[in-house]
Simulated scan of single mutants.
Amino acid sequence: MRIAFTAPMKPIDDPVPSGDRTMGRLIVKALETAGHEVRIASRFRSWRKDGGDDVLTALRKAALEEAERVAESWTKEGYRPDLFLTYHLYHKAPDWIGPALADRFGLPYVIVEASRALKRKTGPWALGFQAADEALHRSDAVAAIHNWDRERLLPFFTDPEDPRPGVLLPFLDSHAFEEAAKTPRPPVQAPLKLLAVGMMREGDKTRSYEVLAEALGLVRDLPWQLTIIGDGPTRDHVLDLFPADRIRWIGALPPEQLPAQYAAHDLFVWPAIREAFGFVTLEAQAAGTGVISGDALGVPEIVQDGVTGLLAPEGDAKAFADRLRSVLNDPMKVRAFGAAAAAHIAEAHSLEAGAARLDAFLKAAQEHYRCVRSKPKQDS
C-alpha cells in the first residue's frame, strides 16, 4: 500500500528529540516493516504554543496553501497514494492538509494518536479544536494511543456502532534492548541500582523528578543508589533535590548508549507525571529491567502492575515510596519483574507487534472508506 504521511505536531526529521518524534519515526518504520511504501507528504508543522483566532486563521491559510502545493506536485508526477495517514492530532496541532488531500484524491484518511479536550471548544483554541473535529469527522479510522484518550474521543462518535475509534498501543524497535537484556546480570545485592531517565525541563518532567526525590527521601533508611540520565534547563534544581552521596548523574546520552544502561541497573524508577505512556518505560522493560512508575494516562497499558513492575497513584510520593520499600526489602523481586518485562514487551510492544496492529488498522480504514465514503450518491 502507498501511504502518504504527515505529522502536524512535529515532523519526524525535527532536530529536537522528543517522544513524539520517536513515535512518528516508529510508525513509519513499522509501516515499512509491514511492507507498505511510505512517503512524507508534507513537513508542515501546525503546532503552536499559543492560540488565538488571528494565529489559527493565518495557520489554516498556510496549511491549505501547502496542501495545494502537494496536490500539484502529485498531479505533475502522476503519484496517487492509497491512503493518507496523519500522526498526532489535537487542538494545538490540527490537520488541514490530510483531509484536503484525501478529498482531492479520493483517499481513505486515518489518524494515529488523536486526543480531544472539550474545555478547548471555546476560548483561544476554538478554531484549532474545530479543525481537529473536522478531521475526525473526515476520518475513516482513528486510533488513540491509550484508553484514557479514547474515552475522551468517544463523545464525538455519537453512534455506538461506529467502528472508527480505537486504540493502537505504543511499541518500539526493541532489538537493541533485547540484545542488552541477554547480558548476564550479577547477583542482586545491596545497594540496589536504581535508574531514572528524563529530560530536565520545566513542567511535568521536573515534577516527576520532584516526586521521585520525595519518595526516595522516605526510603533513605534503606540501601539504594540512583543513576540519573538526562539534562536540560532545570538541571541544577533537579540535581539539588537528591542527596549527592547517593546519586550518579551522567547527563544526556545518545540513544544507542541507553540499552546498556537500562540493562546495567536493577530497577527503573519514574513517576511519569502526565506522561501519555513514556518511551523510557517501554525501553527499560525491553532491556529486562522492571519498573516502578506512576499510573499516569497510558502507563497501566504498558506496565503490568505486580508482574513487570509496580504502579503508584500519579503524583503520590508516599505511595511511590511504599512500592520502592517493598522491593528494597525483597530485592529478588527485581529479577522476576525484569524477566516478565522483557517477555511482555517482546510479545505486545515490539516493532513487529506494532506493524501487525498498524496493518490491521489501515485495512479497517480502507474497508470503512469503501463501504461508507466511496458509495455513489443516490439521485434525489
Rank of each mutant, 00 (worst) to 15 (best):
V211D: 01
R185G: 13
M23Q: 06
R104Q: 06
S208I: 08
R80A: 06
F84G: 00
A348V: 14
D140W: 01
H368A: 06
E178W: 08
D359K: 09
E178F: 15
A190Q: 03
P155D: 02
F5Q: 09
V238N: 01
E314Y: 03
R373Q: 07
F157L: 09
L267H: 03
K318E: 12
D13P: 04
F157Y: 15
D322T: 15
E68K: 04
G51S: 13
R150D: 03
S42Y: 10
D236R: 02
T183F: 01
T183E: 02
G24N: 05
R357D: 09
F242N: 01
Q189Y: 01
P124D: 14
I229N: 00
Q285P: 04
A190E: 14
P160N: 07
I273W: 01
T33K: 05
Y79E: 13
H237P: 06
S350D: 10
E77M: 11
L212A: 02
Y369K: 07
H368S: 08
E283N: 09
G354M: 08
A312V: 13
D236E: 15
K363D: 13
L89F: 10
W125E: 12
K119P: 03
P8R: 06
D103N: 03
R235Y: 00
L118N: 04
I3S: 05
A264V: 07
R80S: 03
P124A: 11
G230V: 00
K193V: 00
Q261F: 11
P271I: 10
H344L: 02
V307S: 03
A356P: 11
F156C: 10
D149I: 01
E178Y: 09
